[in-house]
Nucleic acid binder design. Structure first.
Lengths: 218, 218
DNA sequence: AAGTATATTGACTGATCAGTCAATGCACAA
DNA sequence: TTGTGCATTGACTGATCAGTCAATATACTT
C-alpha cells in the first residue's frame, strides 16, 4: 500500500540526507540501499526509482556534498586584513576549523578520494572541486608573491595556491589518523611561520634585542 | 587433486604479491579472494587457508606494504648537505619522486586511508606509519629551527615535521586527482621557497642592489 | 613401508544485495 | 465521475562472494 506522494525535489533531498549519514558511517561501498531507505523512512524500491542505481545515488550524493560545501569564502573580515600574509593565515585557520567541526563530511571526503582512483566520473568532480579550491587561494597567493618578489622569485601563484591546499588536506589526513595526539595548533603555528614575512625583529626591534640566547649559536 | 607443496613463507609472499596488484586495481573492497587466487595461480580455498579471512589478507597486505616501503631515508648524500634547509628540500624532492614512480602503491595507500576511517586496526597501523614518517623529518626540522631561532620562534619540531609531511601527502592527493595538469615542479618550487632561509640578497649583495624594482612599492 | 601431519583442492552453502516488476494508491485533469 | 500519469510498495530474482569442509596428494618421519 503505497504511501502519500511528496514532490520529487523534497524526496530526493530526504533520501540524500539519509544517504549522507549512512555513507559517512559505513563508507561508500558499505552503503546499502536498504539502509538508506530505512533511514529515510521509504522503501528500498523508491530509492532506486529516484536515483536509478546505487552508483547514481552516490554520484548525486557527491554533487550534494560539494554544492553544500561553502567554498572557501574570503569574507569581508579577511579581505579587511592589510597584509596578504595575514589573509593567507586567516584562510588556513578558517579551513582547519571547518575540518574539525565537520568530521562526518571529512570522513566522507576521504572515501570519495579513494573512489576517485578508479572512477573517472568521481575523479572529474573531485578535480573540479580542487581546482575551485586552488582558485580561491590564488588571489591571495598572488598578493603574497607580489608583496615579496625577492623572496618568491620563480614561484608561481598556482604553485603557492597548491601548497596552501596541501597544508589543509595534509593536516586533515594526519588529524584524522591521530585525532588524539596530532596537534593542529602546532601544525598551524609552523605553517604560519613558514608563510610569514621576513622576521619582524630585524626591522622593528633595536639591535640590542635582536638575538635572545635561546640556543647556542651552532 | 592438490598440487605440489611450497614453503609457507613463499606461498604467502606469492599470494600477497597477487593481492597487491588486484587491490591496487580494484580497491580494497573490490578485492575478491577468487581473483587474488587466480592471479596467484592457486585455489580460492588456499588463500583462506593461509590468511584465514579476507580481512586477514588485507591486514597482511597492509603490513607487507608498509614494511616494503623504504621509510624516508636520509642517505649520506643528503646528510652531506651543509644547510638543514637544503636537507629538507632534498627530502621533499626525494619523496615526490617516489610518489610519481610508484603510482600503484600510492593508489593503494589512498584506499587504506579511507579504510582507516572505520577500521581501528588499520587506523592504528597507518598512525604508526605516519608517526615514523614524521619522526624521520624531525631531526631536520630541529636543525632548521635551531639554525634560525628568530624566524621560527614558537615553532615546534613536531609541528614543522607535520607540515613537511603534509607537503608530501597534499601533493600526492592533488597530483593523483589531476595527473594531467597538476604541476609538481611548480609545487616543489613554491614549497622550497617557503622553507628557504631568509632571502639571500639581504646579506650577500651590496646595499645598492637590494631592491630590484619589479613592482611598485605596494 | 607405513604412518602422520599438513598443504591444497573444488564443490558446496548460506547470506547478502542491487536491481526488476506487477500491483496499488494518490493527485490532478477533464 | 472517470481517467491518466506517476510515486510508492514489497515480493521476487539472479548474481555474487566469503567462508566451510571432506577428500586427497605431498612431504617428512620412523
Amino acid at each position: 500500500m503505497p504511501g502519500a506522494k511528496v514532490p520529487q525535489a523534497v524526496r530526493r533531498k530526504q533520501i540524500l540526507g539519509a544517504a549522507y549519514h549512512v555513507a559517512a558511517e559505513r563508507g561508500l561501498t558499505g552503503t546499502l540501499i536498504g539502509e538508506v531507505a530505512a533511514r529515510a523512512g521509504v522503501s528500498h524500491g523508491l530509492v532506486l526509482f529516484h536515483f536509478k542505481s546505487k552508483r547514481g545515488l552516490l554520484l548525486a550524493l557527491l554533487d550534494w556534498l560539494l554544492e553544500s560545501t561553502t567554498v572557501l569564502h574570503l569574507g569581508p573580515d579577511i579581505l579587511a586584513l592589510s597584509s596578504p600574509f595575514d589573509q593567507l593565515r586567516a584562510l588556513l585557520r578558517q579551513e582547519m576549523n571547518r575540518l574539525s567541526s565537520e568530521p562526518q563530511r571529512t570522513r566522507l571526503t576521504f572515501d570519495y578520494w579513494s573512489a576517485s582512483v578508479r572512477d573517472a566520473t568521481i575523479r572529474s568532480k573531485m578535480r573540479t572541486e580542487f581546482a575551485r579550491y586552488r582558485a580561491a587561494f590564488r588571489p591571495v597567493a598572488e598578493a603574497v608573491i607580489a608583496a615579496n618578489p625577492v623572496r618568491f622569485r620563480g614561484v608561481t601563484a598556482a604553485g603557492l595556491a597548491a601548497v596552501s591546499v596541501s597544508f589543509i588536506k595534509g593536516c586533515a589526513v594526519q588529524s584524522m589518523l591521530d585525532h588524539e595526539h596530532f596537534d593542529i595548533a602546532d601544525f598551524l603555528v609552523a605553517a604560519e611561520h613558514l608563510i610569514q614575512e621576513v622576521p619582524a625583529e630585524r626591522r622593528r626591534r633595536p639591535a640590542s634585542a635582536r638575538r635572545p640566547v635561546l640556543h647556542s649559536a651552532r
